[in-house]
Write a protein that binds this DNA or RNA. Structure first.
Lengths: 338, 338
DNA sequence: ATGAAAGCGCTAACAT
DNA sequence: ATGTTAGCGCTTTCAT
């Protein structure tokens, strides 16, 4: 016997398809005896529901899409892992898409072209703006992640990047740094991590020396090494602390410092951002900002679930526009001057 | 108008559903004029095929599953990214599952319980054995990845781990190391990387000092640090070179070396395995074995595609049992003694 | 080259 | 509590 169908189970159990369906979907109002007969038939036949058929009938796919720039970027790898877990607990499977930060691709994502047949979309945009997102036509429930968007009219889940960056910078100040630089201060005006950096400096009455602040073209480590080298080569007096917008950049920065014959943290203390898995085993290990990734993942899935219930009419709660996620500073060797 | 269906397009174009279907699926034998009319109708209506319905009718889902231990493990993150790309080029979307190396979960995977409704499965097992895989009942096309299986009766795509480990070890010998240790020599007898290590040592007439060889409980960096510390604490004379079964372990090992006041590579040279993105920005940067991940991904997808065509009867080519993937040694600072 | 219509396997409204 | 049955939207065989 190949691929038993619902009807086969029904026949074997001596009931109708409806009853089998009820049992399988855990509905109430099925007598104990009937349920047992059905379950036995299911086991005997090795029946598994055909999801394509179920999807068609229900109008739902049991699939959500997660769209990130690149899966091999450490932060997104770690985050994606959590999202898979969170989705699984509510019965969703996840298809992952990579945009590589491509604007055209990101546009297709919000237009709903990349992954149709999905019940919801968790999207970490980098190129596309809030306006375009707000004006989208696709009705698929959407949740935004990350620091690149704000006020796009859809739920947005992220840590308070300004506060987190300020905390990181303040930590450098607390351990005695006075000439503090920043790597990854790209697109200054709307870069929340740069804003947080400035804020902390200002609060402590420290000047921001423009020659110690660099933007980066990519988030990759090699770029961090390049930019910090530029700072060390270009400035008459080097910084005594550096805040890096990501851990990956920070790892590169540490290389640059070593190459210039300086020590971390004694000569230059370094703080990263993101708490990627490698920061812990780097030499020296990396002080960093750790966003609560589990919380991000769980809330993103929960927001989608709510949107879904809103569609189905089971819930009418208004969607939250923005949710702040917990974060904390993890102090490690790269700032440990004791 | 909401959600136009095939029939709507047909009506508007003044043709039958069959014709629209033909056009959409790019079949031959459609007159130019008809095709244009249909395309126009599709555009006007903004029609997009309902995949659930198509799946049901075709009996295929357009989905494959990729099952890895954990997505936030660097090697798998990088690999998964490539698999997504490769799958996309042939029109497959990918749902990713994590097993966390759990035997029970891995059993469910080969039993086809985790991800049904998929056209194929790319699986990187760690706990389940070749025998169980060979005896599986589920007919879903399966491709195996990684060094933990061999001869399971299904296509297996991996580098020659013995040869690669021997190459890494030989490199240590070439740069002058004589007391060489290994971290991650878990389950000695069937650990190909350990075999390769022994092979290279033997070929050069060097003894393997058991006190310099350690297995690891996990693949995480902290475990590498722990085990190399144990070696340095336990042995009267330390090694002058260490081969680590993974880069992640190697990063931890380097920390241990530093903590013991020794230098890499001058006192102890270190070679890793996998070429994770961080090896490049570590301090010192990490010499490693780089498997051709693109090749792995492309071949895995290709093997699934072939199996699929075999099912459909479009191809009768016999499946390849095992495919060796290219790899190379990348020499970086952790072994650069010039 | 195009049309008519029978499924694909399940869900859920309606009936009892 | 359980049964009957009409869809869900597309593909595809068989006609024409």
């Amino acid at each position: 016997m190949v691929k038993p169908r619902l009807q086969d189970v029904a026949d074997r159990a001596g009931v109708s398809m409806k009853t089998v369906s009820n049992v399988i979907n855990g509905y109430q109002h099925v007598s104990e005896a009937t349920r047992n007969r059905v379950m036995a038939a299911v086991d005997d036949l090795g029946y598994r529901p055909n999801l394509a058929a179920r999807n068609l009938a229900r109008g739902r796919s049991g699939l959500i899409a997660l769209v990130v720039p690149r899966l091999d970027f450490p932060y997104f790898a770690a985050l994606s892992g959590r999202v898979l877990q969170a989705a699984r607990t509510v019965g969703w499977e996840v298809v992952i898409e990579q945009t590589d930060g491509d604007l055209e691709l990101e546009r297709q994502v919000i237009a709903g072209h990349l992954a149709r047949r999905i019940d919801g979309l968790i999207f970490s945009p980098v190129a596309v703006g809030a306006d375009e997102i707000r004006g989208r036509a696709d009705p698929t429930p959407l949740v935004l992640l990350g620091e690149h968007v704000a006020d796009a009219g859809v739920p947005h889940i992220a840590i308070d990047n300004v506060a987190a960056a300020a905390l990181a910078t303040q930590h450098l100040i607390d351990i005695g740094c006075r000439r503090i630089g920043m790597i990854g201060a790209t697109r200054r005006q709307d870069n929340p991590r740069y804003q947080g950096f400035r804020q902390a400096m200002k609060r402590s009455g420290l000047p921001v020396d423009p020659s110690l602040v660099r933007s980066t073209r990519s988030t990759e480590g090699i770029e961090g090494e390049r930019q910090l080298s530029a700072i060390l080569d270009g400035s008459e007096s080097p910084p005594d602390g550096v805040f890096c917008a990501t851990d990956w950049l920070a790892l590169g920065a540490i290389r640059a410092i070593h190459r210039h014959g300086l020590r971390v943290p004694q000569d230059i203390a370094v703080v990263g951002f993101d708490a990627i898995p490698y920061g812990e085993v780097a030499s020296p290990s990396l002080t960093t900002i750790m966003p609560d990734r589990d919380q991000i993942a769980r809330r993103a899935v929960a927001a989608l679930l709510e949107a879904d219930e809103r569609t189905t009419g089971r819930s009418a709660r208004e969607p939250l526009d923005h949710q702040d996620v917990d974060f904390r500073l993890i102090v490690r060797e790269s700032t440990d001057r004791r």
